[in-house]
């Protein structure tokens, strides 16, 4: 994470820590999100994701550390910084006796004034135009999430902070949401999204940070993380195949699980591997390319040390 001097990161936390009595909810969170990036904030339940987001948005006071939004230290400039942020918070609800439209009008007023046409536009974007006159108490959880997203987009913010935004959404809604986030990212918006739906995050984020027990334990670009992959194969002579594979310079490692060989090599080397094995009189029964997934990475880093 290197930021240019001309443009500070849209979001930066430095040593952000929150303690409730003896319980450490978040410890020394230091991260930065550059403009136009979609950052996935992952972690098991109770790992500190919502605490981190609440600290960033000024709902909680930090025990140590601080947050900068658009280069503004939120300890001194919280309100003006938040005017440029849209947020969907976990568990946030609306005024149940008011319609979706009136709730948006209230959100718009608090955000500094939003035209009625913009209210209609965002309701259309999240697919709630047809139910805008209905009272929110009649909305399903998925509809409330959509309304929350509409509220976050209402004042055209530069940064979106979304805490479990697809909770309660049906598959179609989740897909629409994913497409919307991608589109926002392409349009130059910065998005910081927490989720436990790893497949969703993998498809929409540029970068991920994984938090566990209040600590940031990994931070990677999704492209780097998915790059590479591995090949799984079974051959006529496993021992001989092992020797051949270990002699190839583009193979970074081979592990054996019975007669299955797992080869750490790029998928486009499959033909070369097949040729090398055949050259030594070893023939393939099976060859499967295996993709690296965010789920593998997540489980690897979050379960590290647990087996011991």
């Amino acid at each position: 994470m290197i930021s240019s001097a001309a443009s500070p990161p849209v979001l930066r936390t430095t040593g952000l820590t929150k303690r409730y009595g003896k319980r450490l909810a978040l410890c020394d969170l230091t991260l930065a999100v550059e403009r136009g990036r979609v950052y996935g904030f992952l972690g098991p339940n109770g790992s500190g994701k919502t605490t981190a987001i609440s600290l960033i948005l000024g709902l909680l006071s930090s025990t140590a550390g601080h947050t900068e939004l658009f280069g503004l230290d939120t300890r001194a400039h919280l309100a003006p910084a938040l005017k440029r942020v849209g947020a969907v918070l976990e568990g946030v609800d609306f005024y149940p006796h008011l319609s979706g439209r009136d709730n948006m009008r209230i959100c718009g007023a608090i955000s500094g004034g939003v035209e009625e046409s913009r209210v209609e536009e965002v309701l259309e974007t999240v697919g709630l135009s047809g139910r805008a006159r209905d009272k929110v108490r009649g909305y399903s959880m998925g509809m409330r999430q959509r309304l929350a997203l509409a509220g976050a987009l209402l004042h055209d913010p530069e940064l979106l902070i979304l805490d479990e935004p697809t909770n309660g959404m049906d598959p179609a809604g989740m897909r629409e949401f994913r497409d919307l986030i991608r589109e926002l990212g392409r349009g130059g918006k910065t998005v910081f999204v927490s989720s436990h739906l790893l497949n969703e995050v993998q498809q929409m984020c540029d970068e991920v940070g994984i938090v566990k027990e209040g600590r940031l334990i990994a931070q990677r670009s999704v492209t780097d993380l998915l790059e590479g992959g591995r090949l799984e194969l079974r051959a006529t002579d496993t021992e001989a195949a092992l020797d051949v594979l270990r002699s190839l310079d583009f193979v970074h490692g081979v592990t054996r699980e019975g007669d299955l060989l797992v080869v750490d090599a790029r998928h486009d080397r499959a033909a070369e591997i097949s040729r090398a094995l055949a050259g030594r009189g070893v023939y393939l029964h099976e060859l499967h390319p295996q993709e690296n997934t965010l789920e593998d990475f997540f489980l690897e880093v979050t379960t590290e040390g647990e087996a011991a």
């Binding site: 919280l78 918070l89 609800d93 608090i110």
Partner: peptide, 9 residues
Amino acid sequence: TVRQVLVRG
């Protein structure tokens, strides 16, 4: 809704 208000600046 109090959180909704406060995160809007």
